Simulated assay, not measured.
Amino acid sequence: MAKIFCVANQKGGVGKTTTTVNLAAGLASIGQRVLMVDLDPQGNATMGSGVDKRALQSSVYDVLLGSASVQQAAVRAQACGYQVLGANRELSGAEVELVDLEQREKRLKNALAAVDAQYDFILIDCPPSLSLLTLNGLCCAHGVIVPMQCEYFALEGLTDLVNTIKQVHANLNPDLQIIGLLRVMFDPRITLQQQVSEQLKSHFGDKVFDTVIPRNVRLAEAPSYGLPGVVFDPAAKGSQAFVAFAHEMVGRVRRM
């Protein structure tokens, strides 16, 4: 049975997509069967996995509206070792079309149930806003991975996200919980980042992942080549950190 995790943060620009594709590639590199679901109409996670969003025969849009199954719409990211349920601009129209459909918040959950046995991990890249798309992700997830920078405004965004997760947990998905906070783009030379990191650890305890993803040029360059950093430059510090994070995730899942 697959473990389903949303990578979410209501603050933009915190590295959600980078985290999703690199964790997917890291998990695949250690032998896990992975499906990466792109729920963002920009389709960055799709392109960052080496899949051309413009050439998709079917996408997550078709899955949400019921015109294709996950099995029909998912494609193999050959260089990365995982399956991709891609997104493109069509998805931006799904918000309006989903409103009148039955079980509109659980369309993705019902679709993923059919392929549950085929994967060890299903990772969902959520858009930054709280929308029907994000709700679909949160309703089918066992937990949320929250990538965050160790900066003051990141703490404010975290409060909003925790409140959202509590509401979804209470009303739509009793299984939903925060799996952990992942410190990303971390620079130990900056005193404020060290202070915020310590605040996170003292407040959230073991909900903060041990792995820290450093600020890394190679991770930033990788999307322009249509690859996760883990595949683009496996020797880079950022790539090695994501593989370490993949090992930590597998360990955490076994303890769940």
Rank of each mutant, 00 (worst) to 15 (best):
V168R: 11
D187S: 09
R54F: 02
E97I: 00
N9V: 12
V253F: 14
N9H: 15
S67H: 07
V115P: 15
V84S: 11
L155S: 12
N136F: 04
L227C: 11
S92W: 00
A241R: 10
I165A: 11
K237P: 13
A220G: 08
L135T: 13
G66Q: 10
S59Q: 06
D206E: 12
E248A: 09
K53I: 07
S224Y: 06
V231M: 08
V70I: 03
V196R: 01
G48S: 14
G13L: 13
Q78H: 04
R252V: 08
L39T: 00
G226M: 13
E95Q: 12
G226A: 08
K106G: 15
Y152M: 01
E105R: 08
V21D: 00
T20M: 05
F242P: 01
L130S: 13
Q78G: 03
M249K: 01
R215Q: 09
L56S: 01
D125E: 08
A113W: 04
T211V: 15
D160A: 14
D233Y: 06
I145D: 02
D116T: 05
T20K: 06
N163P: 00
V212T: 15
E151P: 05
V34S: 12
Q149V: 07
A25M: 09
G31F: 01
V243G: 04
V99P: 09
M148C: 13
L101I: 08
S29L: 15
S69Y: 06
R104F: 03
G238P: 14
Q32I: 03
Q194H: 02
Q118I: 03
Q42S: 10
V208D: 12
N136Y: 02
L101P: 00
A117D: 08
I179Q: 12
M36S: 03
C80T: 10
F204H: 05
P41C: 10
A28L: 03
G15C: 04
V243E: 10
V96W: 07
E105F: 14
T19R: 08
L172H: 14
M256Q: 12
Q118S: 14
P228K: 11
D210V: 10
A113I: 03
L85I: 02
L112G: 08
A220F: 02
I124D: 11
I178R: 06
G86S: 07
T20C: 15
A94M: 13
F245K: 02
R54Q: 09
V253C: 06
Q118N: 10
A111W: 02
S197C: 11
R218E: 00
P147L: 04
N216F: 12
L176I: 14
G205E: 04
A2Q: 03
S131F: 01
D52W: 05
E90H: 15
H203W: 06
L123T: 07
P223C: 05
H142M: 13
F242H: 15
V99I: 15
D233G: 00
E151K: 08
K3L: 11
A244M: 00
F153H: 10
P128Y: 01
G31D: 14
G66S: 09
L64F: 07
F209M: 03
F209V: 01
V96Y: 07
G157W: 08
K207Q: 12
T211F: 14
L108F: 09
Y225W: 05
S58H: 14
Q78N: 03
A73P: 09
Q167H: 08
L172R: 07
